[in-house]
Amino acid sequence: MSGRDSAEPVAELEEVSRVYHLGENVVTALDRFSFRFEQGEYWAVMGSSGSGKSTLLNILGCIDRPSSGSYRVRGEESAAMDDDALSDLRSREIGFVFQSYNLIPQLDVLENIMVPLFYQDEPPADGPLRARHLAERVGLAERLDHRPPELSGGQQQRVAIARALINDPALILADEATGNLDSATAVEILDLFDELHAEGKTILLVTHEPAVGERAESVLRLTDGHIAEVVHGREVGA
């Protein structure tokens, strides 16, 4: 849908390791991890606590760097990039949705949605218009000038999703995006993800809950920084 070359993987990890040194201890959060995420896929990343899910997501989102190995976003090698280039990459290609929404409290809904555009080298001229459409899209057209503290958790998460979409990213990365929501609201959010998937967005959703994992197209299960199981191509919503 975005007209990009779909033959190229959106994200490609090769032998990626992420090692933490804590004094004498060495914690290997990701261990020579190799994987490809293709355009339009919808993955649930699952696994026990400490299995490296968040670490994987941070590396995919370019806010963390691999200790070794290679990671490419749409063919761009991230290992070679400096901090500015990585930031630029994030502002163009990554959309984050966090467990605790992470909106900026002093900005209103519309401004929050537009934050990623502020940091692009050449912000699009139609930013406010796009933000309005996205707010409408997630059902918040009436709340554009509200501040985050005035919104419910579900509404805040909708704003966060709109924000993740504003730069038309290659990858939408959601870490426990429904973790703080009641089940009814969680379902609404998951419906939204389904819609995005249907539109051809590439989505990675980290979750603990099997019910949530089942909503995704495919499941990637981690143990100790390794891939434990890959379940491909389930029916959406099955």
């Binding site: 806010i63 930031s87 630029d88 994030r90 502002s91 163009r92 900026i104 940091y119 730069n167």
Partner: peptide, 16 residues
């Protein structure tokens, strides 16, 4: 600190 983390994740460069 949290706000800084958010802004950085959303693409803010250090100079921003």
């Amino acid at each position: 600190t949290r706000e800084i983390g958010i802004r950085r994740a959303l693409g803010a460069k250090r100079r921003h």
